[in-house]
Write a protein that binds this DNA or RNA. Structure first.
Length: 203
DNA sequence: TCCGAGATTGGCT
DNA sequence: GCCAATCTCGGAT
């Protein structure tokens, strides 16, 4: 069952943590992609200079001002894109970066999108490498900014998040975020991942 | 096989 | 010039 508005319009940190274990579903050309969210990071509205919207909303980040459930995609390092789910009520700024996904359905499509060749006798390492990073699963799903920037996971008919049973507390690891050494907020414990899951980008 | 350094790349500020 | 990243290749294990 699709997560509704009430899931996304809560506090950013709660949304980021509870997204673990949920299923990101994409339907394109009658092809279904499904994957379990295994790693997230929260970017929050106060005292977080690692957040793109820290100094206020710009044209790049305009969707962050929308109500929770919208999709914020940004370009990074010229060649990659990262996928965030906006949280909080309209006008409050916060979002969760999805950093890792475990493929569940449509693995053959993900494999083709990543390696530009059909899936045939894949190595275990190749499967892990499909979706164990924030730009990797975006490439695997074939998501791009032009197509999905600002889309709404609550109402869109191409992409949504499906509910799943709440994870037990001991399966959730809470730690520091990745590659934000430049930020004063680098030591905030705003990264969450599922313990022992191989599709987590970094332990 | 694993790990670190270096190259890659272009929009944003 | 900087950056919510990734790939490749070399040398070490």
């Amino acid at each position: 069952m699709r997560l509704d508005r009430d899931f996304f319009t809560r506090n950013t940190i709660i949304v980021a943590r509870e997204l673990l274990g949920k299923i990101l579903v994409l339907k394109r050309d009658e092809k279904i992609y499904k994957g379990k969210i295994v790693e997230t990071e929260a970017y929050i509205k106060t005292k977080d200079d690692a957040a793109h919207f820290h100094k206020g909303i710009t044209d790049r980040t305009r969707v962050v001002a929308e109500e929770g459930g919208h999709i914020y995609i940004y370009n990074i390092y010229g060649m990659y894109q990262c996928f965030n789910i906006i949280a909080e009520k309209k006008g409050v700024h916060g979002g969760a970066l999805i950093r890792g996904i475990e493929p569940i359905e449509g693995i053959e499509y993900m494999y083709e999108n990543r390696y530009k060749k059909p899936l045939n006798q894949p190595k275990k390492r190749e499967i892990i490498n499909l979706t164990n990073g924030p730009a990797k699963f975006v490439m695997a799903y074939g998501i791009n900014k032009d197509e999905f920037y600002g889309a709404d996971l609550v109402t869109d008919d191409r992409i949504w998040v499906e509910d799943s049973p709440k994870l037990p507390r001991e399966k959730i690891i809470k730690t520091t975020r990745i590659n934000i050494d430049y930020a004063k907020s680098k030591d905030y414990l705003l990264r969450f991942y599922i313990k022992d899951n191989p599709f987590v980008s970094k332990k």
